[in-house]
Design a protein around this nucleic acid. Structure first.
Lengths: 93, 93
DNA sequence: CTAATAAGGTTTATAATATAAACCAAATTT
DNA sequence: AAATTTGGTTTATATTATAAACCTTATTAG
């Protein structure tokens, strides 16, 4: 049995990746609403995905308020797809 | 986004359940080999699945050696299938 | 015979993870 | 000008997973 990438095998990180797979880019607030997570948790998990090179994070300003925009990288897409493949072998889908 | 049953969202427990979905029953040694886990880890995770009512565990003797036989319950099957459904919504499969 | 090794586990300790709580700075509202 | 909101980050805590140590009975080797 192949290993399930532990970086993706986490509910919140998987949710983030799932959203970013479908959306080109998403900001912090949007991700927070969609995933119904706390800001702290989201912040931490975004950092981890970013450190792994699975997403890019741009911190800028929208008007006078901070704005954090995330999008998935090619590496992230690849990792996500591999994760799905391994998972399929567990679930026999 | 629905919650992923945390009891199933664990690599080793998922592997155990996946095996038991396909096999009617399996003993400790078989599960250990198939999952390539350590005995301690396997023992703990089997207990958790058993406490949750997802599997039944019969501890008996095979000749003069102990033998632990596991099989999935109806509740376990249901939980596993629900888990898959939720997961599908994450992965859009 | 008895010392060592193996089989089949369980219990306990540790490392990793996820989550929540507390906090911060700037802007807005009262 | 005090209180609240927005958009976060950092730190502390609780949970989880994992590994290491241990136990009991059997078997094998010397």
């Amino acid at each position: 049995m192949k290993e399930l990438n532990p970086l993706l095998h986490s509910q919140l990180r998987l949710a983030i990746m799932s959203i970013l797979m479908n959306v080109e880019e998403a900001d912090f607030v949007y991700l927070k609403e969609k995933t119904e997570s706390t800001a702290g948790n989201l912040s931490v998990q975004i950092d981890k995905l970013s450190s792994a090179g699975y997403i890019t994070v741009e911190k800028g300003m929208s008007g006078n308020r901070p704005r954090t925009i995330c999008s998935i990288t090619d590496e992230g897409i690849k990792a996500f797809e591999e994760y799905i493949d391994v998972l399929k072998s567990y679930l026999n889908l």
